[in-house]
């Protein structure tokens, strides 16, 4: 049993480090590109990977490696912002539902049921379509359909903890609602919520890229992995590297965050240790 705990801890450190490296990489991506990712040179368009251009060039002759590197900014940061937004909004709504009970709870939960009843991406597509494209609108659209999961989780956690003796004891100490939430409830329910959030990073990255792929996310010429793939899909047969490069980037990032989430869940679950 003890051995397993150490292994989980090692895994956590490993994937945590990878995730941090990925973030650091995207922060400094501007300085890491070998070429200007936006400079067009039609004379070298659609070149296959070579020593000069490691991942080849796209149809405007832009260096793919540079575009994938700079694309990490749009892809990873928008995802993190999106996950942060839905976690915070969902948790706030969930705690409100859990604490208030009765009418407020019923109304908010029925609203969340409506969102959960639709296939998320289709609904997001509709919202993004109405709002018009662009990375900001894509984030808004996905946030609008993704918060209920966190609201449900926060609500059930709040309901469970609301009945505990220490919350009642604290009520008897005259503690107000705000202090109760921030001192007693939030610190004791935040664990599972954070784990879910980290596990969600991968999914959200995929969905964001999906919206971009369908032309409802980042607009060209902004380098974003989803829109880059969309842009190149007609050339899948003639110049596959243009599609593969951002695809593999998505695959690797999603993988890292999913594995980190999994390990975090194992680590947070005392039975798994």
């Amino acid at each position: 049993m003890k051995k397993m705990k150490i292994n989980t801890k090692k895994k956590l450190i490993f994937f945590g480090t990878l995730a941090v490296l990925l973030l650091v990489f995207s922060i400094f991506s501007e300085y890491l590109t070998p070429y200007d990712p936006y400079e067009q040179d039609l004379s070298i368009a659609k070149q296959a990977p070579s020593a000069e251009h490691l991942l080849g060039t796209d149809r405007y002759g832009r260096d793919m490696l540079s575009r994938v590197i700079i694309g990490s900014q749009a892809s990873i940061y928008s995802t993190l912002i999106l996950v942060a937004v839905i976690t915070i909004i969902g948790t706030i709504i969930g705690i409100i539902c859990g604490l208030s009970g009765k009418a407020v709870d019923v109304i908010l939960m029925r609203i969340s049921d409506i969102f959960l009843a639709f296939p998320g991406l289709v609904f997001a597509l509709a919202i993004a379509g109405v709002l018009g494209g662009g990375i900001h609108n894509a984030i808004i659209a996905l946030a609008a359909v993704s918060w209920p999961k966190f609201a449900r989780l926060a609500r059930s956690q709040t309901l469970a903890i609301k009945e505990t003796a220490f919350i009642e004891a604290s009520k008897l100490s005259g503690t107000g609602v705000f202090k109760m939430v921030f001192k007693h409830i939030l610190p004791n329910i935040i664990g599972p919520i954070l784990v879910t959030a980290v596990l969600d990073i991968g999914t959200m990255m995929m969905e964001l890229a999906g919206l971009s792929f369908l032309g409802l996310g980042a607009k060209p010429p902004i380098a974003e992995w989803g829109s880059m793939m969309s842009d190149a899909r007609s050339m899948l047969a003639t110049a596959p590297w243009i599609v593969m490069a951002p695809g593999i980037a998505i695959f690797i990032s999603v993988m890292i965050f999913n594995l980190l989430g999994d390990t975090l869940r194992d680590f947070a679950d005392p039975k798994g240790r």
Binding site: T164, A165, F166, E168, A169, S170, L172, S173, G174, T175, G176, K179, K183, H184, P187, N188
Partner: peptide, 26 residues
């Protein structure tokens, strides 16, 4: 009131002293 479950009547993440003094601070 004093509760049936002594350990559970304190927030596991808060020091005993802060729990005891909560009403005073409030």
């Amino acid at each position: 009131m004093v509760f049936q479950t002594p350990v559970e009547s304190f927030n596991p993440r808060v020091k005993l002293g802060d729990g005891v003094g909560e009403s005073l601070r409030n």
